[in-house]
Amino acid sequence: MSVSQVYTSDKRTMEKVKALLERVDITLDEHLDYTCAVFDEAGVPIATGSAFGATLRCFAVDPAHQGEGLLNEVITHLMENRMERGYFHLFVYTKPGSAKFFKDLGFSVIAEVPGLLTFLENRKNGFSGYLKKLEKKKLPGQAAAIVMNANPFTLGHRWLVELAAQENEVVHLFLLSEDAGPIPASVRHRLVREGVADLPNVVCHETEAYLISSATFPGYFLKSEEKILRTQARLDTALFVQIAAALDVTVRYVGSEPRSVVTGIYNEVLTEALPAHGIQCRVVPRRELPDGRIISASAVRQAIHDDALDSVADMLPETTLAFFRSAEAAPIIAALRTEQDVVHY
C-alpha cells in the first residue's frame, strides 16, 4: 500500500479524511500545508497524517487496520516531504496515549499538557541541549524572565525590562527567534540588544523553536479558535516552566494586553498556571503616553505602514528610531507598507 497526497481542492477525499479523524476524536486543523493518506482497495482512507511547517499532526489509523505499520509509512512519507522542503528539525503533536508510537519512531517528548496533548521532536537532545546551553548562562541571585517578540522594540518593552531589572538581580530576556512579518529576527534582536545595552543585569537569549514559535504556538502567528489557543498556551507554559527551572527563574514579567486577543489569552493562562510551579507571574500595565495613547508595537508598525513614523516617535527609544530613519531600514519599511494587516490580532 502506498501513501499519497490529498489535495485540499479534492473536497470529496478531504471529507473522508475528516471522517477518519473524527472517528478517533481529532478535528482536522485549519492551518495545514500538506495532508497525505493511505487508501484501501475501495479508495477509502485508512490512515492519514498532515504537516504544517516543521510540525506533524492530525494522525489517525482506522481501528480495523491498526498493527499493520501504517503510521510508520505515513510518518516516513511526511518526513521525506518535510525534508524536501528544508525542515529537518521536526515536531509532533499527538494525544498523550499515542506518544509511545512516536517514541518508537525516534521522537522524544519535550512537554505534555495532561490529558490533551504531547509534544515531541525528532532529536534526542534537542530541548535538553537547549536547556544545557541556557544553564551555562545562569547567574546567581533572584532571577526574572521576560519573553518578547519586540516587533519592533518600543519604550513599552524598555519600561518592562527596566522595571524587572530594578526589582531583580538578574533578568533573562528571551527574544522570539521566528522570522515572521516584515521585520527580520536579526533586526528585532539587534534593536533589543542596543536598547538594553545600558542595563548590566539583563541577559539576552534566543527562544529558538521552544517558546512562542510556530512549532509550540502556531496560534500566535495565525488566527485560531480560542480553545486551540488555550491548549497551545498551556503547552508553551509547560516548556517555559522547564526553561525557568534551568535558570532558577522565580518571576515572569508580562505586559498587560488590552488589544491583542492571542496575547490576552496567553497572559491569562500564564497567570493561572505558573504559581503551581513556584513561579510568580507579574502582569505589568501597559505604559501610556501623557496624551493617553498606549505604547504598542502594533501601533508603531501601523504608523510605519501609513508613512507616519514621526507620529510614534515618542513611543520609540533612540536606537529603534535611529534605525528606522536610516537607509538600512528602507527595504523593511517598503515591506511593511505592502502588508495588508500589520496589527497583531
Binding site: N72, E73, E80
Partner: peptide, 8 residues
C-alpha cells in the same frame, strides 16, 4: 542535511 531509508 540528507536522509535515506524508511521507518518500515
Amino acid at each position: 542535511p540528507a536522509t535515506a531509508g524508511t521507518l518500515e
